[in-house]
Structure formats: C-alpha cells, structure tokens
Design a protein around this nucleic acid. Structure first.
Lengths: 181, 181
DNA sequence: GCTTGCTATGCAACTCGTTGCATAGCATGA
DNA sequence: TCATGCTATGCAACGAGTTGCATAGCAAGC
C-alpha cells in the first residue's frame, strides 16, 4: 500500500490539513492516486502516531481551526526507503474493456446504448485532456526555468496528457468497431 | 463492483471451472481485470446461489474432478442490464507517478536507484508489448474474417498495445528528465 | 431568520481484496 | 520412495476502501 507515500509526497511539496489534502487528491495528486477524506484522515492519524508527520493547530478567522501536517524526519526516511523499493505490479481494472467484450452477448439495441455510453465517456476524457493542457500552460509556461520538483511534476503531467490522447484515439477505434458490427 | 460481470463475460466466451477462470484472469482477461482464485471462487459461489450461473460436475481422468460453470438466463440478463449502465469512474493508482514526484525529495543516489527501477519497469512493459503483438499475430492473422466477438476482443487488445506503446514513450521521457536533473 | 453551502474533522458499518494456509489426487523425475 | 509441482477447491483472518452519517462554525443569498 502506498496512500501513506502519496500523502508524504504531497505534504513535502506543501504542508496542509487533512481537508486540504483531500482537495489535492481531488485535483492534482488524484490524477494518479485517488483517496477519499475518510481514508486520508485515518491514515494521517496513524502516521502521526508513528511519528511520520507532525501536526500543528492553526487558528483561522472566518473558518474552523485546522490541524496542519508536516513531514517529520522519520516520515522522510520512510519515503526515501520506499523510493528505492521496486514498483509493485498494478491491479488493472478497466471496466470499459469488459463491457466492450461483453457487447458480443447483447443485441442491436444493447450495442447502440453502449455506443452512446462510449461517446459520453470519450467526451469526458476529451474535457479532461483540455484541463490538463490548460494546467500545463498555466503551471509550466516556461520550461527552461524550472526547479527539480517542477520538472518532475511536469513529466508526470505529460504522462497524463499522453494517456488521454492515446485513450481518445483508441475510443475512436472502438466506436468504429462497434458501429461496423 | 464488476468482478461478477468480468466472470460472466469470460464464461459466455467459454464455460469453465473456477480454476480455469483463474488461469484466464492471469492471461487474457487479467490484462484489464485482475482477480485471484480466492476472489473468483467466492464470487462464483454467490453467483451460483443467486442463479446467475449453473455448475456441472465433470469427472476427468488423470486429474481431480472439476465443477464447470455456465451462464444461466438470469446471469445473462444481469450482464445485459449492466452493459446499459454508465461506466463507473475508475480509481487510478499509479504508484510510479508518486515515486517520480517523490524523487524531488531524495538525493543523487536515490535518484540513481529510481532510474534503475524505471529501466527495469520499462523492460517489463517492453516484454509485455512483445507478448501482445505475438498474441495479435497468432489470434488475429486475418482481420477480414472475424466474427463479432473476435472483432471486439481484437479492439480491446489494440487498446492494450496502444497503452503499452504510449507507456514506453513516456518512460523514455521520464528517464531523460531524471537523468537531466 | 432560514436555508444552502463550504471548510474541517471524525465514527461506524460494510464490502472488497489480499495473504496464508489447508486439503487432495495424480504425474514426473531424482 | 520421496520431493516437487500441477490441477482443483476452499476457509479464516486481516487490511484497505467505500458509504452513510454526524458535528460544528461561519458566509452568502433569499
């Protein structure tokens, strides 16, 4: 498991509260590691107990107080050690691929509704690609003047962009195949 | 959840025992939906209880008996209904992306070992792409004479191939970025 | 003044997935 | 004959992830 490690990376990039982490997991980090606020609070509690992170009470005016977390030396050591370990094989779960193979066992109307669904799915990912490209323009306008952290974040973002482009091309291929059946 | 549906599709393509299903999930189906034999047996039991599949005892010589499962009418109805439902948003878990962003918080030796690990990961996926391409040559030598099921299986396989190619390109990009830090 | 909505945190129950282990028949080779 | 390995099935315990719910302060609009 590596939610801990994703949290450590996020807190090293920028300390913050459980709530703020949950926001980030909805946006940037969540592109490659999803987590709900319950998971995050639970894991943060354990990490605090293990001395990986330290909390600081921060009073805010106009808002409830928050507990802002920072990575402790021990947490950083855990992260560095994890970085040296082999990448675990991923558990692939591609529901759409199952549906496409399942389309062989439905009728014309069923295939028509699958086509509609694939089109919707495609539009969603086209919009996502647009957000990635906008984010790239906003956050990395000048690639010649980036620090190490930004270069790495940009490389990960380029991966997201490449994935979405590949996906859109493949979905077009799938739509052609479904329509030609 | 959709392990049930992946099993239904697999059993419609070809009836078989829990053990055989587990083999298939290691090979073809497992490319886009992973499952261990324990999960499969547990879910098969529930599906049998719900009348989605039926079992038949098959004696084999030279081997233990097996229980071969087939999809019942009710199971087929469940699958058709599921095919019409929207695709659920996927839970993305890309450990390597977390590690790449984490590389900003380690030293030169840490980055060097990450480079080695990315190279190993790349070699693995290059081998996987090779297996996909071999499988394509073997199973779809003549794309002009395929039935609906085969056309759909081929479309899914093309997705796997496109994914692996995209991944290899991106990993080269990542390696360049890591080396240039 | 009331509702809606956002920030901020958390519990409890449940389901799903993983890991370790167990059993059993038969085949193969040392 | 003994160990190893494959087919074939399954239990039990644990850990991770999901869902529903609860609380609380404050802001903004109706």
């Amino acid at each position: 498991m590596a939610l801990e490690h994703a949290i450590l990376v996020s807190l090293l990039e920028q300390p913050g509260s459980g709530y703020e982490l949950a926001r980030r997991f909805e946006r940037s980090i969540g592109r490659f590691w999803t987590a709900t606020h319950q998971q995050i609070y639970r894991v943060l509690k354990r990490m605090e107990g293990d001395g990986w992170v330290t909390a600081e009470e921060v009073g805010q005016d106009g808002r409830p107080d928050k507990r802002s977390f920072s990575v402790a030396g021990q947490g950083r050591a855990v992260l560095v050690e994890w970085l040296r370990a082999p990448v675990q094989p991923e558990a692939v779960r591609h529901e759409l691929a199952v549906k496409i193979r399942g389309a062989a066992f439905t009728d014309l109307a069923g295939r028509a509704s699958l086509i509609t669904e694939v089109e919707r799915y495609r539009a969603e990912h086209e919009a996502l690609l647009g957000r990635y490209l906008n984010g790239e323009k906003r956050d990395f306008p000048d690639t010649s003047s980036l620090d190490a952290g930004q270069r790495l974040q940009h490389a990960v973002l380029r991966g997201g962009i490449a994935y979405e482009r590949m996906l859109l091309d493949w979905l077009d291929d799938v739509l052609d195949t479904l329509r030609a059946l």
